[in-house]
């Protein structure tokens, strides 16, 4: 028996919108502490890791660990039928080949349930150890989205360089080049507007902008984004979901030939 009631149902809608274009199918792993998902994109260049902890749900019941394979496009279609203010409940029974999404309007005058077929997904689960990163940049998520969008109009790749001076995003294309430098800025009215750079060692890495732009679909989930880089590891782009968990995107770098 599985039953999860999320009062802020829009959160689940936003989570799906942030990952559905990167990953087609994924196993949702439910346990008593919450649910998680890990999946690579079809090209094995990027990886999504999602965690939503049970504490964030008004009601959370998971009698035993279970994994449900879902097509994220189909799940997104169903969740789009929920209103932004709706309460969303996910229900499943042991051994069933379906999952039910129930949508309740805040005034309880409309209740809908959508039953979705599950699928068998044979996916590889990677072990991602905790790592010490050379540099961690925390910045407003909207600013990061703007930079990725702007640079993608000039080039295909972005070089992200972190030095004592700040973080530089650079690209190069047929029409020219672009460099955007952000300096650490903690003297802001709101903490979420700050750019905070923790640097142990300078680092400079190149990434495909197409993937970075896909990650920024998670911008509605969080006012801030954290970018963690080390030369020998994929970059981690993390959007924290307040008091519930996170969506993390891991992206393998472009290597110099």
């Amino acid at each position: 028996m599985l039953e999860l009631r999320l009062v802020q149902g829009s959160l689940l809608k936003k989570v799906l919108e942030s990952i559905k274009d990167l990953v087609n199918d994924a196993n949702f792993d439910f346990s008593s502490s919450g649910f998680s998902l890990q999946s690579m994109d079809s090209s094995h260049v990027a990886l999504v890791a999602l965690l939503l902890k049970s504490e964030g749900f008004e009601h959370y019941r998971c009698d035993r660990n279970t994994s449900m394979g879902m097509n994220l496009g189909n799940m997104s279609k169903m969740l789009k039928c929920a209103g932004n203010d709706d309460i969303i409940t996910i229900k499943g029974d042991d051994g069933s080949d379906t999952v039910t999404f129930m949508f309740e309007s805040p005034t309880q005058d409309k209740i809908a349930d959508f039953e979705m077929k599950l699928m068998d997904i044979d996916s590889e689960h990677l072990g991602i150890p905790e790592a010490e990163y050379h540099a961690i940049v925390k910045m407003p998520s909207a600013e990061f989205a703007r930079i990725c969008k702007d640079l993608a109009s000039i080039g295909d790749t972005v070089v992200i360089s972190v030095t004592k001076e700040g973080v530089k995003f650079s690209t190069r294309g047929d029409i020219g080049t672009a460099n955007i430098v952000l300096r650490q800025n903690t003297t802001v009215d709101k903490p979420e507007d700050a750019t905070v750079i923790e640097m142990n060692e300078p680092v400079s890495m190149t990434f495909a902008l197409r993937y970075m732009n896909s990650f920024t679909k998670a911008t509605p989930l969080s006012n801030t984004v954290t970018i963690s880089m080390s030369p020998d590891l994929p970059v981690v782009v993390e959007y924290k979901i307040a008091e519930m968990g996170y969506v993390r995107f891991y992206l393998a770098p472009k290597m110099e030939e």
């Binding site: 590889e124 495909a208 393998a252």
Partner: peptide, 14 residues
């Protein structure tokens, strides 16, 4: 031109 690395080249399968 840079080569795109694969994500599963960095982490081991569980």
């Amino acid at each position: 031109e840079n080569d795109q690395a694969a994500i599963d080249g960095y982490y081991e399968a569980n």
